[in-house]
């Protein structure tokens, strides 16, 4: 079953103080079924992350539409009311980056359990699941009650991934989640993604080393810079890997 149909999606940034519009991507069309994994590839600056952010609505797309088949009904992510997007973020669409935004005096396990608590799960149960996931990502149990503000980059990343992946979503947007992970954690992450895929979670991902997720990829969307015109990426090709 189709979950997302993106048509003629476009984003340009209007930088007022420069009096300039900067185009990130233009006229992107693709679709995604439940349980499918779409790899977005392209050089630096080709608009890969911008595309993910335009689907999550951290950025406002400037053209086209993204029809998402929500459990609540069909909706265009490009134009949906903020409150509808907030609802989808809480229940259906997740965004995974490599960066954690730790909060003072909030422990690792609390951060990871939070998305479950927001769904009304009891504290014990939520912290139990949080612990399991942190353990699978290789964060030492003695750190679970500590504050991630003091953690190393790699440890923070483990907390972040656990937090982003603990609550199953219907659509996951993955923005280089494997960057700078050690091999063991990367394997655990790919394992988690494979499990989510089995649960019919659709995923759109940008990966620095696409080899990490090669077995999961169903389709690929290649973005590229049009040579000679800096900052004007175009879709070069969309092909199926299978």
């Amino acid at each position: 079953m189709r979950i997302l149909e993106v048509e003629h999606y476009a984003k340009q940034f209007n930088i007022h103080h420069l009096g300039r519009k900067i185009e990130a991507f233009d006229d992107l069309t693709f679709s995604l079924k439940q349980g499918q994994f779409l790899l977005v590839s392209g050089t630096n600056g080709s608009g890969k992350s911008t595309l993910l952010r335009c689907l999550y609505r951290t950025y406002l797309p400037t053209g086209g539409r993204a029809l998402y088949h929500s459990l609540h009904g069909l909706i265009d992510l490009a134009r949906a009311a903020d409150i509808d997007i907030a609802l989808l973020r809480q229940e259906e669409i997740g965004f995974v980056t490599q960066f954690l935004r730790p909060r003072p005096r909030v422990s690792a396990i609390e951060l990871v359990a939070e998305p479950l608590l927001a769904t009304g799960m009891a504290l014990n149960e939520a912290e139990g699941e949080a612990g399991e996931l942190l353990e699978s990502f290789g964060l030492k149990p003695e750190l679970w009650k500590a504050y991630p503000t003091t953690f190393s980059g790699g440890e923070q990343q483990k907390v972040n991934l656990a937090r982003a992946l603990i609550h199953p979503r219907r659509l996951l947007l993955l923005d280089e989640p494997t960057a700078s992970l050690d091999a063991q954690t990367r394997a655990a992450l790919v394992g988690r993604l494979a499990w989510l895929k089995e649960q019919d979670v659709a995923m759109i991902g940008v990966f620095h080393h696409p080899g990490d997720v090669r077995e999961l990829v169903d389709t690929e969307l290649a973005l590229g810079n049009k040579t000679g015109v800096a900052g004007y990426p175009k879709v070069e090709e969309v092909y199926v890997v299978e």
């Binding site: 929500s70 609540h72 909706i75 134009r79 949906a80 009311a81 409150i83 509808d84 609802l87 989808l88």
Partner: peptide, 8 residues
């Protein structure tokens, strides 16, 4: 201009 809320 965004749409009116539909899902909530």
């Amino acid at each position: 201009v965004l749409d009116e809320p539909q899902l909530i």
